[in-house]
Amino acid sequence: MLTILGRTSSINVRKVLWTCDELALDYQQEMWGHGFQSTHQPAFLALNPNAQVPVLRDGEFVLWESNAICRYLAGGPPGSALYPQERRARADVDRWMDWQLGDLNSAWRYLFNARMRNTPAEPDRTLLAESEASWNHHLTLLARRLEQTGAYVTGHEFTLADIVLGLSVHRWLMTPVSRPSLPAIDRYYDRLRERPAFARYATQQWP
């Protein structure tokens, strides 16, 4: 039995839960993190010294880092549709997952934390403007990609890249920010909303 450690309100935990749902994997979830068990407890630190969720336990195997967990879960049958076996197709999925984790997350971090988490309590207006501009720039890049593919991030098939980026798009749409008109993003979001797992792990109360 797979065990996922982490609170559902975490966007990174929801990546993993959505992946499990798409793959019809059985798992149990233990709530750790803000509002639940502290990730600074020795028992958790023994699994992930970074004190961050999610963590996956698969028997004796322990894995942390959300995108790595998603890749692990989808790395073999029945996960080939989400994470293709063909080398170049898989590399394309990896590229967009890494872009989400590095470039896109860096863009929104200051603004999102200030507006949604009140951290810092008195944000710097210049840094807010820079974060907003960077966030919108990266979503514009994603929109251009979606205009090229006409469907999902790597083409006509739904993949792991759409799980991690779909949650990011939802966060952008739910955060108070001056957004440019990006019809390709709107169409993409509507397409994702047709998936039952998206409704469970993206469109509820979590930004």
Rank of each mutant, 00 (worst) to 15 (best):
M1Y: 06
L2I: 11
G6N: 05
R7D: 09
R7C: 01
R7A: 15
T8Q: 14
S9H: 09
S9Q: 08
T19W: 02
D21A: 01
L23E: 04
A24Q: 13
A24Y: 09
A24M: 04
D26S: 01
Q28E: 13
Q28M: 08
Q28S: 13
E30Q: 14
G33V: 05
G33D: 02
H34A: 14
Q37A: 08
S38W: 11
P42Q: 09
A43G: 06
L45K: 12
V55R: 02
D58Q: 02
G59S: 04
G59V: 09
V62L: 05
I69R: 00
I69M: 00
C70S: 07
Y72L: 08
L73S: 02
G76C: 11
S80P: 08
A81I: 03
L82P: 00
R87N: 09
R87H: 11
A89S: 07
D92N: 05
D92W: 14
M97D: 07
M97T: 04
D98L: 11
Q100H: 06
S106A: 13
A107Q: 01
F112I: 10
F112Y: 14
F112A: 08
N113E: 11
T119A: 13
T119M: 12
T119E: 14
P120K: 10
A121Y: 07
E122S: 09
P123S: 04
P123F: 07
T126M: 10
T126F: 11
S131Q: 08
A133F: 11
S134R: 13
N136M: 03
H137T: 04
A143H: 07
A143P: 02
R144Q: 15
R145G: 03
T149M: 07
Y152Q: 04
Y152A: 02
V153F: 08
T154H: 05
G155Q: 05
H156S: 15
E157S: 12
F158Y: 10
L160K: 02
I163G: 05
V164A: 03
L167F: 04
H170W: 07
P176R: 04
R179Q: 15
L182T: 12
A184D: 11
A184Q: 14
Y188E: 05
A197H: 08
R200P: 10
Y201V: 06
T203S: 12
T203L: 13
T203W: 07
Q204H: 15
Q204W: 14
W206D: 11
